[in-house]
């Protein structure tokens, strides 16, 4: 299985020179099996560039199939939806899977609101030319997708929950824990450890530098060391710091990686936009 980070930034897309090495796009991550099956997690601005590249092959001909897992519907995780070009080609079949937000609205109604005529000229999901299905997931349900086995888990994110994913393909496992904050950093919930158990790659929310965290406790995001605790206790083989703060420049992220690496034997890197990596 290969992975490519198309967007690694949390909350807000950052342009400019200070954000070139790690990238300024909001979250979107692609997984690709050895046989070429594809899965996307989240539709932040990073998805727009992937969408353009997908058009060169079967998606440009209306023959593409893609499942997309959403962690939740905060804007930085869905703002690429109206600009993901494969949606505009008839014949493509795109499934969007995610939990209903805990607002009382369904996932489908929420995405409809995003495309409501005030906010978007698309004026509703029904105007996307591709076949689009919105499928509500009820964590801790398991999902089988072509090439991928997926376990879901509801995890705390401020006053709400987001969906975390454990994804296995080609005998490798990626655990995606973004937009999460545990009540006690030193004692992550048992179900979170189970989700990350033995993962080849753990992608973890690292919005805050450890020294900034005290000011931002309760906002729903983790400091870099939270991912270290999960990786060590769950025996994950590698840790990707993810969902970087919009205020974190390349230099600041370098420092976080250096400090985090110094405190653990688990190999640590900061997720960056760029090329396909082997899991």
């Amino acid at each position: 299985m290969k992975i490519r980070f198309w967007g690694v930034r949390g909350s807000f897309a950052m342009s400019g020179r200070d954000f070139l090495r790690y990238g300024g796009n909001t979250t979107s991550v692609e997984l690709l099996t050895d046989a070429g099956e594809r899965l996307l997690i989240d539709l932040g601005t990073g998805a727009t560039e992937l969408g353009k590249q997908l058009m060169a092959a079967e998606f440009g001909k209306g023959q593409g199939k893609l499942p997309i897992l959403l962690t939740h519907t905060h804007l930085d995780h869905i703002q690429g939806l109206p600009f993901f070009t494969p949606f505009f080609i008839k014949g493509n079949e795109i499934r969007i899977l995610g939990a209903d937000p805990n607002s009382g609205l369904s996932l489908e109604a929420t995405l409809q609101n995003q495309l409501a005529p005030h906010y978007s000229p698309l004026n509703g999901l029904e105007n996307l030319a591709a076949g689009v299905s919105i499928e509500t997931v009820r964590p801790p349900a398991k999902i089988s997708l072509p090439g991928f086995e997926v376990t879901t888990m509801a995890v705390p994110h401020g006053s709400m929950f987001t969906t975390a994913y454990r994804i296995t393909a080609d005998g490798k496992t990626v655990t995606y824990l973004s937009d999460v904050e545990y009540p006690d950093l030193d004692a992550p919930p048992a179900e979170v450890l189970a989700l990350a158990r033995g993962a080849d790659l753990l992608i973890h929310d690292a919005m805050h530098a450890d020294h900034d965290y005290d000011l931002r406790r309760g906002w729903g995001h983790s400091p870099a060391r939270a991912g270290v605790v999960v990786a060590e206790r769950a025996g994950a083989k590698k840790l990707a710091l993810f969902h970087h703060s919009p205020d974190a420049t390349d230099v600041m992220i370098d420092e976080v990686v250096e400090r985090t690496s110094a405190r653990t034997a688990v190999p640590v890197f900061a997720a960056a936009e760029g090329s396909y990596l082997d899991v």
Binding site: R9, A13, S15, Q79
Partner: peptide, 10 residues
């Protein structure tokens, strides 16, 4: 339309 990070918009 949407924010565009990256080397092309510096």
């Amino acid at each position: 339309s949407y924010p565009v990070p990256g080397a092309a918009t510096v």
